[in-house]
């Protein structure tokens, strides 16, 4: 750890470039996974056999493929099929798709935890499926879903480092580049770890807040 402060001052600005990309990848794939996850979950609980079967199959396929392979596929294979994505686009798309499966299962659990009487009450005043979801089920499911959603956010922040495998120069890759050119492995990777931790802590506190709120009810 010799010269840690000195190295910190020197490498911090470069690593901050990586942090910026890490945040872009995390937020981008978080949004995508949320939207896709909601779509899968809605299909799953729609009560329409075809839709729920498609959704279940998609979720299983996604769950069965490692994130890194999904990223390789999007970045290296898609160009052969005529679709060229930038590394950043491929990273957001890959992580977003991969996490949509977990989001979907989380959302579905939240929706199914709502008392059946609530749905019947909504139906009994003439609400259709979508109105029941929007006005009765989803607002109540959010409370249940938020704590695990926060955990997914933390996992996505850390898994955004996998984007480094397809050349996205986010925090982990910046660290690796600096380390391999300066041989200061200890200092650089300690710094990288501390920076990930610094970003995670607010999210961890957020999850704790969600849990408290959900528990209060």
């Amino acid at each position: 750890m010799k010269g840690f402060w000195h190295d910190t001052v020197e490498f911090f600005p470069i690593l901050m470039n990586g942090v910026a990309l890490t945040i872009v990848v995390t937020i981008g794939s978080l949004l995508l996974s949320t939207v896709l996850g909601l779509v899968w979950a809605m299909m799953r609980v729609s009560g329409i056999k075809v839709l729920s079967t498609i959704s279940a199959s998609v979720i299983n396929v996604i769950r069965g493929i490692p994130i890194i392979v999904l990223l390789f596929y999007l970045y290296f294979v898609m160009p052969d099929l005529g679709v060229t994505l930038s590394a950043l686009q491929a990273a957001i798309l890959g992580l977003g798709i991969a996490y949509s499966a977990y989001q979907a299962e989380n959302f579905r659990a939240g929706i199914e935890a709502i008392d059946k009487g609530q749905i019947e009450a909504a139906q009994s005043i003439g609400m259709g499926w979508w109105l029941t979801m929007r006005r009765v089920v989803l607002p109540q499911a959010v409370r249940i879903v938020l704590p695990p959603y926060g955990n997914v956010m933390i996992m996505m922040l850390k898994d955004s480092s996998q984007a480094s495998t397809i050349t996205v120069a986010e925090l982990a890759l910046q660290g690796k580049l600096i380390a391999s050119s300066t041989f200061k492995n200890t200092n650089v990777f300690t710094l990288v770890a501390l920076m990930y931790l610094t970003m995670s802590i607010p999210l961890i506190l957020l999850v704790r807040h969600f849990e408290k709120r959900a528990g209060k009810k």
Partner: peptide, 19 residues
């Protein structure tokens, strides 16, 4: 939907919307 708006229902367990 038209039938349900003409015939309301009151449940044993109330089923009010808690939120």
């Amino acid at each position: 939907v038209s039938i349900r708006t003409q015939v309301s229902m009151v449940f044993q367990r109330f089923n009010l919307f808690p939120h």
